[in-house]
């Protein structure tokens, strides 16, 4: 990059300055600040001064002993599982259909546009819309289920923890399966088409092709969907917060709503909320780590190992010679 003896390297630094400054000030500093607050007595609306606690982990201990927090973690997990598993399964099924070379499903563009649509609508709006739709005793969902003969009497979806969680899971599922589908389809379209052609020539059935060629090749993209889904799912806030404000009886109180309630309502326990967000962050890190570890390509690792052994062998042979 050197021409006429002028070094342009300084522009690399210069042009990165706005990003770095904004990152340091609005991202790194608040993160460190949050960590610090977790070890202090900072609480109460409008307070900004604090001193460190004698037992630095007091907030962590009290959060980990807080039954509501533990339950919020379970709630988050339950709602996530019941949204994510059907979401990925349906997305995979639709991907298999839409990319099936023999079926050639028509109007794919239209289906994709409609199926993806809920994803761009404001989650806050959707939460309140579903609150109205699932109303009791008169509400569109109750009316519909009774007209179809599925229910004899209206059901209060907001009162039981099972149905309340079910609705939240459904909303998340409904908002996100189209997104997962489009990403997976893009992944399939990125696979070398000669692989499919060869399989077809060899007489493989579409089912065989999907499970033996498509799915193994989708591993990286699936991992991407899984990790982003996990990080997003654990932070789920808008829907559970506005659908029933975490109720009934904390059944839809996810960990993010718990943190919000600790810090910005009641006694404004910034310190406890900070400790809780750190715990949630550590959980996200550990789970993503496990995902990466379990999804890494075993065949590739094996290949690398044999390659390394071969090199070692050659070196030794060379030394002997």
């Amino acid at each position: 990059m050197r021409k006429n003896n002028i070094s342009y390297a300084k522009y690399g630094y210069l042009f990165s300055i706005p990003f770095v400054l904004a990152f340091l000030i609005f991202n790194l500093y608040p993160t460190i600040y949050t960590v610090i607050i977790g070890f202090t007595d900072l609480r109460g609306l409008g307070r900004t001064t604090f001193k460190f606690l004698e037992d630095p982990f007091e907030n962590y201990k009290s959060i980990l002993n807080n039954a509501t927090f533990i339950r919020s973690l379970q709630t988050t997990f339950i709602i996530w599982i019941f949204n994510f598993i059907p979401q990925v399964l349906l997305a995979l099924l639709l991907t298999a259909w839409f990319t099936n070379r023999r079926l050639k499903v028509k109007a794919q563009g239209l289906f994709k546009v409609l199926i993806y649509m809920p994803n761009i609508i404001t989650a806050a709006t959707i939460a309140i819309l579903f609150n109205s739709l699932t109303g009791y005793p008169k509400g569109p969902l109750n009316d519909l289920l009774m007209k179809l003969g599925i229910l004899d009497a209206p059901m209060n979806f907001h009162l039981q923890s099972g149905t309340a969680r079910g609705v939240v899971s459904f909303i998340q599922f409904w908002m996100w399966y189209g997104h997962s589908m489009i990403i997976l389809i893009a992944g399939v379209l990125g696979i070398n088409p000669t692989l499919f052609e060869a399989a077809e020539v060899d007489g493989a059935t579409p089912t065989q092709i999907f499970f033996k060629i498509t799915l193994p090749r989708l591993k990286t993209i699936l991992l991407y969907v899984l990790v982003t889904g996990l990080i997003g799912g654990i932070q789920m806030f808008d829907i559970p917060r506005l659908f029933l404000w975490g109720g009934p009886d904390n059944a839809t109180l996810t960990s993010s709503v718990f943190i919000y309630n600790q810090a910005f309502a009641g006694s404004y326990l910034y310190n406890r909320a900070s400790a809780a967000s750190m715990i949630v962050f550590i959980i996200i890190l550990v789970l993503s780590g496990i995902l990466f570890y379990s999804m890494r390509d075993r065949a590739e690792i094996k290949l690398k190992k044999t390659e390394r052994n071969r090199l070692k062998e050659e070196k030794r042979m060379g030394a002997v010679r």
């Binding site: 608040p30 600040y33 607050i37 900004t48 810090a263 900070s274 967000s277």
Partner: peptide, 8 residues
């Protein structure tokens, strides 16, 4: 993760 610190 940085929400509380950002607010403060």
């Amino acid at each position: 993760v940085s929400g509380i610190g950002f607010y403060q």
